[in-house]
């Protein structure tokens, strides 16, 4: 009799485990996004200034990892901007100051700190520390089996990317509200073909033409220390985190649908807003490298008057 009861108790205890296999939800709803922005009145333009681009052709992104104390970096930057001219500015570039050679040296002419959290994330996640600067990512696509590419093969890699078909169109618009001092970025993404995988939109802000010293070893560019060097498109901030956000809740996308996303931000007082650029791109989520296979990229300025 005792034996029977113990068996029943054991069975019931085992069975009750199934009831615990039940997730009790105390907070049914979680706030995942909260944005506030002024309503854009298209009829009046005396309050804000608009700048916009519409991209229907293939554009390519070059992420130039650099440092102000890196002697080989100006050459790579010049090469990149020459290529941009050649491709009629369809090659979008931003410079990311990372690593030891980007560290500021307080009390010297190299006391400026161009580094930021986003750049450091990219540097660490793509494991660039072992390679040193200058090094580039071109559309975050591998070329000849390499993902980070040294500058001498940028030309071939860029050309290779331009040969690929257009997979998405983008519209990018910035509005500056001088009274509130804020910038609203509106993006529209539309895929032109069916793509497998999950896609994200990333929006960065870069500041162009920052005058600050830079080391150099290419006599064609100038002396060893370039005191009045104009740093081009320096990455300043990610508006929606380093790897952006999914275009749809699942990340899966369909052709022909326009995915709209708006962002509002307050620019840093130290930035020259008129020199700032918004760079937005669409990339595929990759389990190892976070975001790879950039399918389209767009750049737009911010009109301040």
């Amino acid at each position: 009799m005792k034996n029977k009861f113990s068996i029943i108790l054991f069975v019931m205890a085992f069975l009750s485990g199934f009831w615990f296999a039940c997730d009790k939800i105390d907070e049914p709803l979680t706030l995942t996004e909260h944005t506030e922005y002024p309503v854009i009145n298209e009829d009046t333009n005396d309050v804000f200034f608009t700048d916009s681009v519409m991209i229907t052709e293939k554009q390519v992104l070059l992420e130039d990892f650099t440092g102000h104390r890196c002697v080989n970096c100006p050459e790579a930057a010049f090469l990149a901007h020459e290529m941009a001219l050649e491709y009629d500015h369809k090659l979008i570039i931003y410079a990311v100051h990372v690593g030891q050679l980007a560290e500021p040296l307080p009390g010297t002419i190299f006391s400026t700190d161009f580094r930021n959290e986003t750049g450091t994330n990219l540097y660490n996640d793509f494991n660039l520390s072992s390679l040193g600067v200058p090094i580039g990512l071109i559309n975050r696509q591998e070329f000849s089996g390499f993902l980070p590419l040294p500058s001498f093969i940028w030309e071939q890699a860029v050309s290779n990317e331009f040969d690929k078909p257009v997979q998405a169109k983008m519209k990018l618009k910035t509005k500056y509200f001088p009274e509130e001092g804020i910038v609203v970025v509106s993006t529209e993404s539309e895929f032109t073909e069916t793509l497998e995988g999950n896609y994200k939109l990333v929006v960065y802000l870069a500041e162009d033409s920052i005058n600050a010293p830079q080391l150099n070893n290419n006599p064609e560019i100038g002396p060893d220390t370039l005191y009045n060097y104009y740093h081009r498109n320096v990455l300043r901030k990610a508006l929606n985190t380093t790897y952006g956000e999914f275009l749809t809740p699942s990340g899966q996308v369909e052709p022909g649908i326009v995915y709209k996303k708006d962002y509002t931000f307050l620019p840093d007082q130290n930035w020259q807003l008129k020199n700032c650029r918004i760079i937005a791109y669409i990339g595929k989520q990759d389990e190892v490298f976070n975001l790879t296979e950039i399918v389209q990229v767009a750049e737009v300025g911010i009109k301040t008057n």
């Binding site: 296999a21 039940c22 997730d23 009790k24 939800i25 907070e27 049914p28 709803l29 979680t30 706030l31 995942t32 996004e33 909260h34 944005t35 506030e36 922005y37 002024p38 309503v39 009145n41 309050v47 009274e179 509130e180």
Partner: peptide, 16 residues
């Protein structure tokens, strides 16, 4: 100035 406040909530659905 007219402002828009946009809040997105996610439904926390139970897996079990």
């Amino acid at each position: 100035v007219l402002w828009k406040i946009k809040k997105t909530y996610q439904l926390n659905l139970p897996y079990n």
